[in-house]
Design a protein around this nucleic acid. Structure first.
Lengths: 218, 218
DNA sequence: GTATTTTTTTAGACGAGTCTAAATTTCTAG
DNA sequence: CTAGAAATTTAGACTCGTCTAAAAAAATAC
C-alpha cells in the first residue's frame, strides 16, 4: 500500500509543521507550506484521514498518526540520504541540493535506499546536520547547543546549522564551518556576545547573529 | 517546456520501437509496450503531435521528430547513466537495475546529470553495453557484431548483450561474460554452431542460442 | 471486388489532484 | 454577547491520463 507523490508531500509537510508530531497543524499553514490552496488541503486531508495516516477534526487542524509518522520518517530518511549523496559524492554545495532531493525522495525501492545508505557509510546526519532516521524510522539525536550559549574555553564540534538561507550557508562555507568540523571558543565579548573561535584550523570572529544558528556538541 | 512523466515514457517507447527513428510505430505495438490500451495511445499521440515531438498521420503510425528525438535521447541518457551508477557504485546486479532506473530517469536537473556523468568517469556504455548518449544527445557507437558470426581464432572484446532477460543475464554473470571483458574463439562446431571460447580466463562452451545475443568488437 | 476481420479512432466516463467562489464555522473586538 | 473578520469546508469545475464500448478505416480472404 504505497503512497502517491502528493500524499507523501502532504505527510512530510504535516510532520515538519507539527514539529515532529507535537503540535496540531492548521489548514492555512499547510496550504502556505505546500504553495497550494486551503480547499485543496481540505480535500487531501480527508484522504489521508481515511487511510489512517493523520487524525483530523474538522476546523481544528491535523496531526500524524503513528502509522503516518512512520511513513513521513521514511520519506525524510530518503531525502536526507540523497542530500548526503549529492554533497559528499557529486560535489554539490549544501544550498543546491534541496530541490533535487525533493524529487529523489519519492523514488520507490527499499533495496536502493539500503544500498545507498551503505555506500555513504551509514551517515547519521545530512549535510545540514539534520539527523537521518535509520531503516526502522528511529532518529538518534545527539544533544546540540546553540553556539551563542557556549562559554570561553569550550572545545567541541559543530553538529548542525539552523538557518538554511543560501547566503548564510555560503558564509559558513567560506569560514569552513560545517557539521562535523571541530570548533573552539577562544574568547567571547560580553558587550555584543560576538566570539573569536577556531574552526578547522582557521581563527574567525563571528557575531551573535551567526553563533545562535550554529549548533554544537555538549 | 518540460515533459510530464507519461510524455517522456511515450516518447522513449516510440524512439525504441521505431528502432532509433527509422521505422514507423503502430498504435497497438505502442499500447503493448507501455501496457496500456490503444485508445489511451491515440489520446497521447495527439498531444505529443501538437507539441511537435512526433509526426502522426491517422491510421498510419507515428515517429519522432528531430525535437522529439532530442528529448528521447536525453531520457535514455539519464536512464543509462543511472543504471551505470546502480551497478558500478551501489553494487546492484545488471538484471536488477532497470525498474529503478525507470524511475530515476525522470528526475529533472541538468546539473545533476552532468555531475553524475563526471562522478562515473564519463562512461560511454551502460552495464548492458548499450551506448550512453552524450550531453548533446549524440551516440557514439562502436561497431558490434553478433558472436555467432565470428570465426575461429578471433580475439576481441564483448561490447554488449542483446537479450535483457533476467535468466540470460544471470547465466552470463556465471560464465563471467559482461561488456568490456576480453573474449577469444577457440573453436566452432560446424554442425550446431556451438563454440568454445575463452572469456576472462575461463574456458566455456556456448550454444548458438547464446552467441547470437553477445555482441563483440570487430 | 465484396465481405469479414483487424486495427485504429472517437465518444463518453472516471479518479487524482487542483482550483475558484460560495457557504459555514470559529475567532475576536467592542 | 453579538457583529464582523478570519479560517475552513463544500460545491462544482477543470486538466491529465486512463479506461470501455462503439464507430470508422484499413487489411485480408475468398
Amino acid at each position: 500500500m504505497s503512497l502517491s507523490l502528493a500524499e507523501e508531500n502532504y505527510l512530510k509537510a504535516i510532520y515538519h509543521l507539527s514539529e515532529d508530531g507535537t503540535k496540531d497543524v492548521l489548514t492555512n499553514a499547510l496550504a502556505d507550506s505546500l504553495s497550494t490552496k486551503a480547499a485543496s488541503v481540505t480535500d487531501m486531508i480527508k484522504k489521508l484521514s481515511v487511510k489512517n495516516l493523520i487524525s483530523y477534526k474538522k476546523y481544528y487542524g491535523v496531526n500524524v498518526t503513528a502509522k503516518g509518522k512512520r511513513q513521513a520518517l521514511q520519506v525524510i530518511r530518503k531525502h536526507r540520504l540523497w542530500e548526503t549523496f549529492l554533497v559528499q559524492k557529486l560535489d554539490f554545495a549544501w544550498d543546491e541540493v534541496h530541490e533535487i532531493a525533493e524529487q529523489l525522495e519519492h523514488i520507490e525501492s527499499p533495496r536502493l535506499i539500503e544500498k545507498l545508505d551503505k555506500f555513504l557509510g551509514y551517515p547519521t546526519v545530512d549535510p545540514h546536520g539534520d539527523p537521518i532516521p535509520n531503516g526502522k524510522g528511529k532518529i538518534v539525536i545527539k544533544p546540540q547547543i546553540p553556539l551563542d550559549q557556549i562559554e570561553e574555553g569550550y572545545k567541541g564540534a559543530i553538529v548542525a546549522v539552523k538557518d538554511s538561507d543560501s547566503a548564510f550557508l555560503k558564509y559558513l562555507e567560506k569560514i569552513g564551518a560545517k557539521p562535523g568540523k571541530k570548533i573552539q571558543v577562544i574568547s567571547k565579548e560580553a558587550y555584543d556576545e560576538s566570539m573569536e573561535v577556531i574552526v578547522g584550523n582557521q581563527k574567525v570572529f563571528i557575531s551573535k547573529e551567526v553563533s545562535k544558528n550554529i549548533l554544537v556538541t555538549e
